[in-house]
């Protein structure tokens, strides 16, 4: 039983770490702001979620487990909102800029 739980921890935390790696690679390699944002939100929600899932068997107090889940929920909430806000900032809904790819809009207006 204990071994199984430890195994779950190792698998879930490793997977979570992998998602963080994927998110970072996406942030570095993807061509423009919006696709990078996409990569980031994956890392945010899945990476952190898997880490939390992996840590759950390792805490004894139910209150601590609740805290872990609360952290994840909060991160999801703010991650989702911030994703919206950043996307809006990366591509303002002006008609003359909307059709441009975000990166061009960023560099050509200087």
């Amino acid at each position: 039983m204990n071994l199984a739980l430890d195994l779950l921890t190792i698998v879930a935390v490793s997977l979570g770490a992998l998602f963080f790696l994927a998110g970072t690679v996406g942030l570095l390699r993807f061509p423009d702001t919006l696709t990078r944002l996409h990569a980031l939100t994956k890392a945010d929600n899945l990476g952190l979620g898997l880490v939390v899932l992996g840590l759950l068997p390792q805490v004894s107090a139910p209150l601590a487990a609740l805290g872990l889940i609360a952290v994840w929920l909060l991160a999801m909430l703010s991650g989702a909102t911030v994703g919206q806000l950043l996307a809006g900032a990366a591509r303002p809904p002006d008609p003359d800029r909307a059709e441009m790819p975000a990166r061009d809009a960023v560099s050509s207006h200087d």
Partner: peptide, 15 residues
């Protein structure tokens, strides 16, 4: 004003 920001400002403060 953006709906996302309004939502955040309504949901987050209670927590």
């Amino acid at each position: 004003s953006s709906s996302a920001l309004t939502l955040l400002a309504q949901v987050l403060p209670p927590f």
